[in-house]
């Protein structure tokens, strides 16, 4: 089973829940692996006291101009939807950071003057602690395109841990990186807080998942603050509320110290039990 933990709003507790949930499941004897897909700022490893066991450079394919046979016909620029190729009077200029690796320019070039070549965009790190494994994608500084790295991180986890349960810690928001982190999952858990901000971004996330035909459930974090807008919305939309995690300064303190929470705070562990029971019921 693959579960994505996402949210519209940032800072609602995706990493807190996914790292604690994975650790707790592993402590119960479950074969589970955590994938940190927030490749622009991966931080799950900070909480897991884990050792780096493997690293792999992640590449994306980009066209590289070979002037030898090029007639400067400009077909490449014409077919590029992303302005990544510029047909100048005396040369073809490629902007790797804009390239979506669609191969159109390379395939349609009459003289094969734009062969696709690998170009590094980041790194995939695999960690291991005494309980379980964790894999993260980490985008290089200055890279604009996170999708290929997210896809490759998911692929790495699939290959290395074929019969494991997978927890994906998604980036915040509702754009392409979130979609890439959610589209292959069996279920998406959206974490929110019961504030007007939380509700606004939750609504956007739910709409996004509807487009993907993804089933969703909601966790309300920092329960006790805000209003009942999120609960009413979930009721109206028929979205299950999986658990409500109590607003508790002690949780925040442990998080700030980079510590796991479930083994120190009972009500947090109870919430994880709610999540596990819910996931168990999904089959």
């Amino acid at each position: 089973m693959k579960i994505t933990i996402a949210s519209g709003k940032g800072g609602t507790g995706k990493t807190t829940v996914s790292s604690n949930l994975t650790s707790y499941l592993a402590s119960l004897g479950k074969k589970v692996v955590l994938a940190d897909l927030d490749v622009e700022e991966p931080n799950s490893a900070l909480f897991l006291n884990a050792e780096l066991v493997n690293s792999k450079v992640s590449n994306k394919m980009i066209p590289k101009w070979d002037a030898t046979d090029c007639t400067l016909c400009g077909k490449c620029e014409e077919v590029c939807n992303f302005n990544a190729i510029l047909h100048l009077p005396e040369e073809i200029r490629v902007f790797p950071e804009l390239c979506h690796s669609c191969y159109a320019c390379s395939e349609l070039c009459p003289t094969n003057s734009l062969p696709m070549t690998p170009s590094p965009i980041g790194i995939i790190n695999e960690y291991r602690n005494e309980l379980f494994s964790m894999v993260e994608g980490r985008l290089d500084l200055g890279q604009e395109m996170s999708i290929p790295l997210i896809a490759q991180t998911i692929e790495y986890v699939d290959e290395k841990f074929p019969d494991y349960m997978k927890i994906y810690d998604a980036p915040p928001g509702t754009s392409c990186p979130v979609i890439e982190s959610s589209r292959y999952s069996d279920f998406v858990i959206l974490i929110t807080e019961a504030t007007p901000f939380g509700l606004n971004d939750l609504t956007l996330a739910v709409e996004t998942m509807k487009v993907l035909n993804q089933k969703v459930g909601v966790i309300i974090n920092r329960y006790g603050i805000g209003d009942d807008g999120v609960e009413r919305y979930c009721q109206d939309e028929n979205i299950p509320i999986i658990t409500k995690i109590k607003n508790d300064k002690e949780v925040a303190k442990l998080y700030s110290n980079g510590e796991l929470i479930y083994n120190k705070i009972e009500h947090f562990k109870d919430s994880l039990d709610d999540i596990i029971a819910f996931i168990g019921g999904l089959k």
């Binding site: 992303f82 302005n83 990544a84 510029l86 047909h87 100048l88 009077p89 200029r93 902007f95 804009l98 604009e144």
Partner: peptide, 15 residues
């Protein structure tokens, strides 16, 4: 256009 306008406009200058 979301991206790449620098290239497009530069090309207009050259042309």
């Amino acid at each position: 256009m979301e991206h790449g306008v620098g290239g497009v406009s530069s090309k207009r200058m050259i042309n």
